[in-house]
Design a protein around this nucleic acid. Structure first.
Length: 466
RNA sequence: GGCGCGUUCGUCUAGUGGCCCAGGACGGCUGGUUCUCAACCAGCAAAUCAUGGGUUCGAAUCCCAUACGCGCUACCA
């Protein structure tokens, strides 16, 4: 069997989309499962949408998830260059061969004419497609226009009344009537190829064996089938992944929604392995019904053919749960390191103090971001209080704590006996102390927290409360 | 409008003709451990398997139609 080679081809148009990572996960896992390579190619043919610096951000994102490509513009590889903008002469050469074989032609139609044409088609309830005006041009007419310097694009021809079929690894057998396939532009007037030409040429030249991409591409695939046929090349196996929908199920996960961007998860305190695990659950179902499993297990067990075809919604609540599971599975030392890596300001806090707070807040966190709100009171006095407190009750607590040894078991005995003596519920007394010391009505176990806070600081805060 | 794909609890799903009066997870609710929250444990509610027709002794599972949803329909990817 030939080597398995998968590829991701992002466009440098901004922060990477979580859908890209979802694809990378499949590419990566499939290539590892089959002892192949995973390639990254930069699809920077759209100069209008190009964003400076986006390429670096893409590497960062991949690295954060631990899904680094084996070949890329950055690390190079035997099929360089991996940036499409550096492969322009190549596309030109293949386009010329297509023209030579009569599978593509020059089109001199202006944007204005094209827009006009589409408008009329829409008005007449016809499918908006190129009307093939320039297909009728004679060789001499083409030569003359070229000589006059009239701008042009190259379009691919499409046979009439033919069924174009392909077998999709995920979606199964798909057929299209060639009459609904447009004479797609394959080379733009600026000399850049469109996606359709570039993807076919590059996937072939880079010896990509398996193409995984979102299902939105399925309607374009017949064009690619045709192109492979025109070139006389074998087509790689294609697998179209189900789209991920927005939380409300209306439309595919879009950049309008903040959580479509990888940045959202990084800044939100999510662990990359948890996000990957969640993404794995979207694309695949564990045979034992497990929902939490490491990437290695996904790579070992997942079956590309078992992927469903329906588009799931993105469920942030479930991601939070998965993330919480991963946080709780971390040992305290590792969680500490992760917190510092996530938020450098946590690294400036007293190290041993942070260490002691971690066991208390760990099971209360679903994201790293929550550490600050959960443990903030250890490091600074509350700036406000969620509710006022009863001074008389509080003074009972203060007296009890003043006289006790400073370990939480002794403190508990002291607080309980004080509340009994005063005829108030212990839980009410706990609550008053909690609000005065932490500013909040909920939080980590009170007495253990006070033990860490220290007697002096605790009493000082109670004093202020009175 | 055309073409393509899809439709099982609120959400993600298991399920490929009898083992399903449909199982699991998230979320919700109730109770327990407990100083609160969280966590953990126990339990509850929640799907006439989109609808209508077939096929079959038997259908969530196969076929057809309808409805709805999503995707594509650019010199964007």
């Amino acid at each position: 069997m030939d080597t398995v080679r998968t590829r991701i081809a992002p466009s440098p148009t901004g922060f990477p989309h979580i859908g890209t990572i979802y694809q990378v996960l499949v590419d990566f896992a499939f290539s590892r499962q089959n002892h192949g390579q995973f390639v990254m190619r930069l699809e920077d043919t759209d100069r209008a949408r190009f964003v400076e610096g986006a390429e670096g951000i893409i590497y960062d994102a991949f690295a954060w998830f631990g899904l680094a490509p084996d070949e890329s513009p950055k690390v190079g590889g035997p099929y360089a260059p991996y940036r499409q903008s550096e492969r322009l002469p190549l596309y030109r050469k293949y386009v010329d061969s297509l023209i030579g074989k009569g599978y593509a032609y020059h089109c001199f139609c202006t944007r204005g004419r094209l827009d006009e044409m589409r408008k009329t088609q829409e008005k007449n309830h016809q499918p908006p497609m190129y009307d093939q005006t320039c297909l009728k041009l004679t060789a001499d007419e083409v030569r003359a226009r070229l000589k006059d310097g009239i701008p042009y694009v190259i379009r691919m021809k499409v046979p009439e009344h033919e069924t174009i079929a392909f077998d999709d690894l995920i979606a199964g057998h798909i057929e299209f009537d060639s009459d609904v396939i447009d004479h797609q532009v394959i080379l733009k007037s600026d000399g850049y190829p469109t996606y359709h030409l570039a993807v076919v040429v590059d996937d072939h030249l880079m010896e990509i064996s398996h193409v995984f991409r979102g299902k939105e591409w399925i309607s374009s695939t017949p064009k690619h089938v045709l192109l492979y046929r025109y070139f006389g090349w074998d087509m790689p196996v294609h697998g179209h992944l189900p789209l991920i929908l927005n939380e409300d199920g209306k439309g595919k996960l879009s950049k309008r929604h903040g959580h479509a961007s990888v940045e959202y998860y990084r800044k939100g305190g999510y662990l990359p392995e948890a996000v990957l695990n969640y993404l794995s659950n979207i694309v695949w179902h564990h045979p034992e019904g497990k929902e939490i499993y490491p990437l290695a297990e996904f790579i070992r067990l997942f079956d590309i053919r078992s992927i469903g075809s329906q588009a799931p919604r993105f469920d942030l609540k479930k991601l939070d749960w998965v993330n919480g599971q991963y946080i709780r599975a971390l040992d305290d030392k590792e969680l500490h390191e992760r917190l510092v890596a996530f938020d450098a300001s946590i690294g400036t806090l007293e190290h041993s103090l942070v260490s002691r707070t971690i066991p208390l807040v760990k099971e209360r966190m679903s994201t790293l971001k929550e550490y600050r709100s959960l443990a903030g009171f250890f490091f600074e006095r509350p700036k406000g209080f969620e509710r006022p407190f009863a001074a008389d009750v509080l003074s009972i607590g203060k007296k009890a704590l003043e006289m006790t040894d400073w370990d939480h078991e002794a403190m508990e005995r002291a607080v309980r006996s004080a509340s009994e003596k005063a005829g108030i519920k212990a839980r009410d007394l706990f609550m008053e102390i909690r609000v005065a010391v932490t500013g909040k009505t909920v939080g980590p176990p009170l007495l253990e927290s006070l033990e860490i806070l220290g007697k002096e600081e605790t009493l000082k805060r109670l004093e202020i409360g009175l």
